[in-house]
């Protein structure tokens, strides 16, 4: 086994591409090192991306924010992103303890491809994109295209997510993320929901994106749920339609953490509550 900490994305891609054996990308390590310790992965090469300056930055650009892949939860929480995307930042800051926050990244959360990953529904609702650098060329894809199933991603050999792009916020926009856990801290989401809204001057929902976590093999973008509230002021009838659309989209598993019935029902409830918070944050009354 080798450990490398290259100082550019290009060098990292070259290392990964040239490696004949198995390789692993190390961001915060809060998933990878647990799996390494457990013997579930045995890479021949570990490529640490935390010494790549471009991956450590948060940049405000003309089209929004660019968050480097190695930015930790703590760094994100203290950044300018919080004001524009409070739901995304809160979701990322729910991950683990203070110790985990010092290390964990949203990109690691995304590429670990757990259906219960906390930051992912918020990122999907936000319409975030991942900038992927590989041996061939750079490509930018919607975050919902990264995970293809539990623990599996659409990234090819040698490809690294370099950053996440969050769009610029117009006036009267808000987002929120909620998860259900039986404890108050340090637990894996049983069900979760992220909602992002843009309102018109009268407080009518003009744009909406709704995403659910832990109710299917990957995080779901639920278009019918968004449709159910577009054109409304989030009156009870619209909220009920939103909840029904969310429940209809669920195909969860039954396990000790929650039954199919419970997850299906709570998905709707959480989506409603998250939508109300997002509406308030957007200035709706």
């Amino acid at each position: 086994m080798r450990y490398e900490a290259p100082s550019s994305t290009k060098a990292a891609v070259t290392l990964l591409t040239k490696e004949k054996g198995k390789s692993a990308i190390l961001a915060g390590g809060t998933d990878l090192l647990v799996r390494l310790k457990g013997g579930f992965v045995e890479p021949d090469l570990i490529v640490d991306i935390k010494r790549i300056p471009a991956m450590r930055e948060i940049k405000k650009t003309a089209s929004g924010f660019q968050v480097g892949a190695a930015v930790s939860g703590n760094e994100l929480g203290a950044s300018v992103v919080k004001k524009a995307w409070p739901g995304v930042v809160e979701a990322a800051n729910l991950i683990g303890s203070k110790q985990v926050q010092g290390r964990c990244t949203m990109v690691g959360n995304l590429c670990n491809a757990s259906p219960a990953a906390d930051s992912v529904p918020a990122l999907v609702a936000a319409g975030a994109h991942a900038v992927i650098v590989g041996p061939k060329k750079k490509r930018t894809v919607p975050v919902e295209k990264i995970a293809t199933g539990p623990g599996r991603t659409s990234l090819a050999k040698g490809e690294i997510v370099e950053s996440l792009l969050l769009p610029k916020r117009p006036a009267r926009a808000g987002d929120a993320y909620l998860r259900f856990i039986p404890r108050s801290e340090m637990d894996i989401a049983v069900v979760s929901a992220g909602v992002s809204l843009v309102l018109d001057a009268k407080g009518v929902v003009k744009e909406a994106r709704v995403a659910l976590g832990a109710v299917a093999p990957t995080v779901l973008l639920v278009a019918p749920a968004a449709k159910a509230i577009i054109g409304s002021k989030l009156d009870d009838a619209a909220l009920d339609k939103l909840a029904a659309a969310c429940s209809a989209a669920c195909s969860p598993i039954d396990d000790k953490r929650g039954t199919i019935e419970f997850r299906t029902k709570v998905a709707g409830v959480l989506a409603k509550r998250a939508a109300k918070i997002a509406y308030q944050r957007a200035g709706g009354k």
């Binding site: 450990y3 390590g29 647990v34 640490d48 935390k50 303890s97 985990v100 290390r103």
Partner: peptide, 29 residues
């Protein structure tokens, strides 16, 4: 625990609180 759950291994690296069981020795150059 060795898996980030208990915090008994807490240290700071460049002032940041972390679980030292979830940091590689090689990372702290």
């Amino acid at each position: 625990c060795g898996t980030g759950d208990c915090g008994a291994c807490s240290v700071t690296v460049d002032g940041e609180l972390v679980c030292s069981c979830l940091v590689l020795g090689a990372e702290v150059e």
